[in-house]
Amino acid sequence: MMTARALIAEDEPLLRDGLHDDLRALWPELQVVATVGDGDSALREALQQRPDVCWLDIRMPGLSGLEVAQALAEDWPAGDRFPLLVFITAYDQYALQAFDAQAVDYLVKPLQRERLAACVQRLRERLAERAPADALPQALEQLRGLLSAAGAAVGERLEVIQAGVGNTVHLVPVDDVVYFEAADKYVRVMTAEREHLIRMSLRELLPRLDPQRFWQVHRGTVVRARSIASAQRHESGKVTLTLRERPERLTASRLYAHLFKGL
């Protein structure tokens, strides 16, 4: 039997070691190739090591477990087998409902032996049976369901964006924005004529935009639907978008490619 390779992402050191020890006992031939304590390292290591299984804590410093999964789905090399994901959470009833609804594997802390053993059993069966090609579409389907459940929280809608530059504040009506782009802790706001920078993460901005008018097409990009001129599909599953008001081309990830299908 081939040995499976795994990544463990959990920010609390004792829990990280505890899970590692339990897995050694329950799944001796599993090879843990990386143990990390934050979301950014989890994404980096996973893309580098290409494990078969990822154990992802939901609440971590940096990217959350869900955001790591989203980024993996977008950046995972095409043709390579997508890892099986298991989410871990101490208490998060909304997430648990979403996991149940999407039939995603999850564990609740404190981890119980029998529950972990059952999870290991299921993972081994799925690793043995599945063909490399099935993994990604299925994972994409589940993640779309999870992300739409996670994004269901709606904040007060923004009508005007206030972008400060030095001592001046520029007021930008939301309707003038062609697209938003995440830039570290900021968001770049692009209108037809110019760009602004606001001190707000895309994560905070998203619930305050009308999802009918503004479409998320990538974990770092939200574009005004009316501004999209054309969408061109690629072999890898990605889609290139051209815009009416601006010359740049945007990339829609495979997680959002289903938004663009010809009628």
Binding site: D17, G18, A90, Y91, D92, K109, P110, L111
Partner: peptide, 12 residues
């Protein structure tokens, strides 16, 4: 969240 994480640590 604090309570269950603490219990998880205790368990280990």
């Amino acid at each position: 969240h604090m309570l269950f994480n603490t219990l998880a640590n205790l368990r280990v």
